[in-house]
Simulated scan of single mutants.
Amino acid sequence: MEKWIEKVHEINTYNPDCKDADDYYYNTELSENISPLTKFFLNTFVNTVGQKNIIITFPDNILRPLPLIAYTSSYLRKKSTLVFTSNTRGLEKKSPRELHNLYYYMLNWDGEYLFYDIPIGYVYKDKIEAKIKMPLATRRYRKRHVDFLKQNFVTTNRPKILLYADNGTKIVENVNNILLDNKTKFKQEMKFNIGCIIFENVDRYVNSKYTSRQFINWLKEYMDEDINFIFHFSNPSSPFINYVREKTDSFVIPFSNSVLTNNNGIVEQASNYYSSVDPNESKVIERYNIDRPYFYSDESDISVFKPLIESGNIDSYFLEAKNLLKRVEEDSILNKKLYYRSLGILYSLQDLIISPSKYKIRYGDYEIGWSFYNIPQFLE
Rank of each mutant, 00 (worst) to 15 (best):
N264P: 06
L325Q: 07
V284P: 04
E299V: 01
F318A: 08
I302V: 13
N280H: 15
N262W: 00
N313A: 05
A321G: 06
R292K: 08
K326D: 14
P293F: 00
A321C: 09
L325N: 07
I285Y: 01
Y296E: 02
L343T: 02
R341P: 00
S342Q: 06
R327V: 04
S348V: 00
S303P: 04
D301W: 05
S316L: 12
S300P: 02
G312V: 04
I266C: 06
L319Y: 13
E281G: 07
I333K: 03
Y317L: 10
F318Y: 15
L338Q: 13
D298Q: 11
S271G: 01
E281M: 13
I309F: 10
I302N: 05
V277I: 15
S275F: 04
S297C: 01
A270I: 00
I314M: 06
D301E: 14
L338Y: 05
F318R: 05
L325A: 09
V328R: 04
Y274T: 03
Y296A: 02
D301H: 09
Y294K: 00
Q269M: 10
Y274S: 01
I285M: 01
S282E: 13
I290V: 11
L324M: 12
F295A: 03
E330T: 14
E310A: 10
E310L: 10
Y274Q: 00
E286H: 11
E329V: 11
L324D: 12
F295N: 11
N335I: 01
S316A: 11
V328P: 06
D278I: 02
I266V: 14
S332V: 12
Y288I: 01
N272H: 12
I309W: 11
F305C: 08
Y294A: 00
N280K: 15
E329Q: 13
N264D: 14
T261W: 00
D298M: 06
S311H: 13
D301R: 12
A321Q: 08
D315H: 09
E329S: 11
L325K: 08
V304K: 12
D315I: 03
Y274P: 00
S275T: 11
D315N: 11
I266G: 05
E310K: 14
P279R: 10
R287T: 04
K337W: 03
V284N: 05
K336A: 05
S282W: 07
V267R: 12
V304R: 07
N289A: 04
K337P: 02
S282P: 02
R292T: 05
E320D: 15
Y274N: 01
D315R: 08
L334A: 13
N264T: 14
S311D: 15
N272C: 03
L346D: 10
N264V: 09
G312K: 10
D291N: 03
S297Q: 10
R292M: 10
L319T: 15
F318K: 11
E320Q: 15
K322S: 14
